[in-house]
C-alpha cells in the first residue's frame, strides 16, 4: 500500500491526525500527484455530509454564531467539521488564524473538528484548498461540514459554489449593510441572519433586507429566502434559525434543488480542473517561463501584437499535438 493509500484509509477510519495531514497535503501542493491520488481514493465515499457556508462582513459574529450552531448540532449527536478561512498577508504570506478562538470550547470534543485555513492569495472568500478539504471531512464521516469565509468584501461568492446552503450574516450598525444589499452579494444567501438583534436598528435592517429580497424575487425565479434574527452572545434565536435551516434543507432535498446544486458544483469543479490542467500543460509545452522574456521584448518593440504572437505559438503547439 502506498503512503497515500494508507492515508486515505486512515481518513475513512476517522483518524484525526490523518485527516489533518491530508488537509495539509492538499493545502501545500508540494506534491500534486499525491494530492490527486488521495482525492481519487476518497471520491467514491463523498457526498454524505451536508455542507453549510457562513459568510458576512467582519464583526457580524460569524464565529460566535457558528459556536452556537455547533453546540446545537452536538446535542443532536451530529458530528461537525469547520473550515474557518482567514486572509493571508499579501506582504509576508503569513496569517493569524483566530476564528477558532470563539469556538474553542468545542476543542476537546471528539465530535468536532475545527481547521483554520489561510487564504494563501486565493480570492473569493475561501482558500484554494477549501473545496478539497470539504471532501476529506465528508469522507471521514462528519455529518456537517461548515465553511466560514473570510468576510471582507463583496467578492466572496465562491462559497456559494462549495456549499449546499449559504447563511449570510448581517448586523446593524456596521454602516455598510446597505452597501452590501446594493452590491448584489444578497444573491448568495439562501438564509439571512440578522445577528446582534438586541442592537438598535436590527428591526429596521430586517425590513430593509426583506424589501430588497422582495425586489429580487420579482426579477429572478428564486423564492424569497427567510430572514432570521439571532443574538449569538445571548444565545437567542439559535433554535429558530436551526429549524429554518432544517426546513430549507428538507425542501431542496425534496424538490431536486440540492442534487442540481451539487451537480452544478461538479460541473464547475470539472471546468476548473480542466482549465488548470490545460493551462499547466500548455505552459509546459509552450515553455512559457523560459520564452517569456523574449516575447515581452518583441511585444514591447512592436514586432508583434500579443494576440498574433500567441495565436501563432498555440497553433504550432496544436499542430505538434496532432502529429503525435
Amino acid at each position: 500500500m502506498t503512503i497515500v493509500q494508507k492515508l486515505a484509509q486512515q481518513v475513512l477510519q476517522q483518524n484525526t491526525r490523518a485527516i489533518a495531514r491530508s488537509i495539509s497535503l492538499i493545502e501545500n501542493e508540494t506534491d500534486s500527484a499525491q494530492k490527486e491520488s488521495l482525492l481519487d481514493a476518497l471520491h467514491s465515499y463523498c457526498g454524505r455530509a451536508v455542507v453549510w457556508g457562513i459568510t458576512g462582513p467582519p464583526g457580524a459574529g460569524k464565529s460566535s454564531l457558528l459556536d452556537r450552531f455547533i453546540g446545537r448540532l452536538r446535542r443532536l449527536n451530529k458530528t461537525v467539521a469547520v473550515i474557518a478561512v482567514d486572509p493571508s498577508s499579501p506582504f509576508s504570506g503569513g496569517a493569524i488564524l483566530g476564528d477558532r478562538l470563539r469556538m474553542q470550547k468545542h476543542a476537546t470534543d471528539d465530535g468536532v473538528f475545527i481547521r483554520s485555513m489561510a487564504s494563501r492569495g486565493h480570492l473569493g472568500g475561501v482558500a484554494g484548498a477549501t473545496a478539497d478539504a470539504i471532501k476529506v471531512f465528508d469522507t471521514a464521516g462528519f455529518d456537517f461540514v461548515i465553511i466560514e469565509t473570510i468576510g471582507v468584501g463583496q467578492t466572496e461568492i465562491e462559497v456559494m459554489e462549495l456549499a449546499d446552503l449559504v447563511l449570510l450574516v448581517l448586523v446593524p450598525g456596521l454602516g455598510d449593510e446597505i452597501q452590501a444589499l446594493k452590491a448584489g452579494v444578497m444573491e448568495i444567501g439562501d438564509i439571512f441572519i440578522i445577528n446582534k438583534k438586541d442592537l438598535d436598528g436590527a428591526n429596521r435592517l430586517k425590513r430593509e433586507v426583506e424589501y430588497v429580497l422582495g425586489l429580487q424575487e420579482n426579477c429572478t425565479a428564486k423564492s424569497t429566502p427567510p430572514v432570521c434574527m439571532t443574538s449569538a452572545t445571548r444565545d437567542e434565536g439559535i433554535d429558530d434559525t436551526l429549524s429554518v435551516i432544517t426546513d430549507y434543507l428538507e425542501k431542496i432535498r425534496g424538490n431536486g434543488q440540492l442534487a442540481a446544486r451539487r451537480k452544478d458544483r461538479i460541473e464547475k469543479e470539472l471546468r476548473h480542473i480542466a482549465s488548470a490542467k490545460i493551462m499547466a500543460s500548455a505552459e509546459h509545452f509552450l515553455n512559457i517561463d523560459s520564452r517569456l522574456d523574449s516575447w515581452v521584448e518583441d511585444v514591447f518593440h512592436k514586432k508583434v501584437s500579443p494576440y498574433k504572437l500567441l495565436n501563432r505559438k498555440i497553433g504550432e503547439f496544436l499542430k505538434e499535438l496532432h502529429w503525435q
Binding site: S63, I96, D99, T233, D235
Partner: peptide, 10 residues
Amino acid sequence: FGEYRESIVL
C-alpha cells in the same frame, strides 16, 4: 449569569 468568553483576536 453565564460565562464571558474572549472573542477578540489580534
